[in-house]
Design a protein around this nucleic acid. Structure first.
Lengths: 192, 192
DNA sequence: CACCGTTCTTAACCCTGTTTAAGGCGCCGG
DNA sequence: CCGGCGCCTTAAACAGGGTTAAGAACGGTG
């Protein structure tokens, strides 16, 4: 546990002594492959840090189409962040793609802690800002890159997931169908 | 000026007495139609609130293709937010589409003020969170909606801009070419 | 082992958006 | 008043992803 605190301290840019009282309130959740951390309709009240394994965030629209918003591995944050912020009921699935261990905390607990600690409050602000920058990067990719370029970008940025995530979910993440991704991969293989 | 402080107070959810010392440090900038508030390469160090007029945020990729990230009207925030956060040099143009007045502030000044004021710090956090929710909504639209649906969404959400923004910029905002938007509009007109 | 579900690929056809080019319209400056 | 420019639309040829369907490869299970 002390090891975790130290790693988190680095990732979050927060001193260990600020982290410890929070970790004491956190619960470890084991998620077998295929199980869900959150589902739409549930009240969104917890978020988590992935200790081990891999989860994906996705939603399903009225036509039944799945869209993957994110993959999150060890030491990354998972949870229905937008819904936690806005207080709206969750519309996102969070599912384990590999057996996962999550360290999870009530959102409310974190909010109260932030009211008492300027450092924690600042950390939450930096976190929100970092999430924003992430999404803006994604907007950039949809506006300016072709599907093939988005795929190559994914391979570069998230190569640690390449063997572990089924291709049709990568296709969904970059906004195309599995068939189209297959075609792109064939084209790339031919060229190189 | 007192009127502005009151409106801003509502928009930002911050008491007027917190706002006043900041407004005293802000500068008003007049921007004739077509002029730029920021350009790529410049150091990103200011942000602003639109008092009057209309600006667009966009970037241009290596192939020369423009992509519009946002339109911002009165009482909305403008500025190279992602670059201010990350400290990277700006890659976004911010241009007046109509003669604009901006109330603008050095980012650094705001940061220092936030260190001294927990309320202001919290406001900045809520602001970052709201920006994140915005971008996630946009991600949702790219992943799940067709171009036609994105156009209709735009018409619903931002009807105040409809007469004032050229259609080819709306096309760029929703991620298609002007030609494609023109066809969509023709199809919609025929159906209704 | 045979069976099943999942994943990935390929092919055919269709639909939508891109590209390029042309023409109309409105507006501004000379 | 005319010329030019920006904006919008339309057309035609093309490219690229969507849809559907079929089949191969794999892994797990009865």
């Amino acid at each position: 546990m002390a090891v975790i605190a130290e790693q988190l301290s680095k990732v979050l840019g927060l001193p260990v002594r600020q982290l410890e009282p929070l970790l004491a309130l956190a619960a470890e959740v084991k998620l077998p492959k295929g199980d869900f951390f959150t589902r739409p309709g549930e009240r969104a009240d917890r978020f988590a840090i992935v200790l081990e394994g891999l989860v994906r965030h996705y939603y399903v629209d009225a036509r039944g189409k799945e869209s993957v918003k994110a993959f999150r591995g060890p030491l990354e944050v998972s949870g229905p962040y937008a819904e936690l912020i806005s207080g709206r009921p969750s519309r996102t699935f969070i599912q384990a793609l590999a057996p996962a261990r999550l360290l999870c905390l009530q959102w409310e607990v974190l909010q109260r802690a932030a009211d008492a600690s300027p450092e924690l409050s600042k950390m939450l602000r930096r976190f929100a800002e970092a999430q924003f920058v992430n999404k803006e990067q994604r907007e950039y990719e949809f506006l300016q890159l072709t599907a093939e370029e988005r795929y190559l970008q994914f391979c570069r940025e998230r190569k640690e997931h390449l063997g572990h995530v089924p291709l049709h979910q990568i296709a969904s993440y970059i906004g195309i169908t599995p068939v189209a991704l297959s075609r792109i991969r064939a084209r790339l293989a031919r060229k190189r």
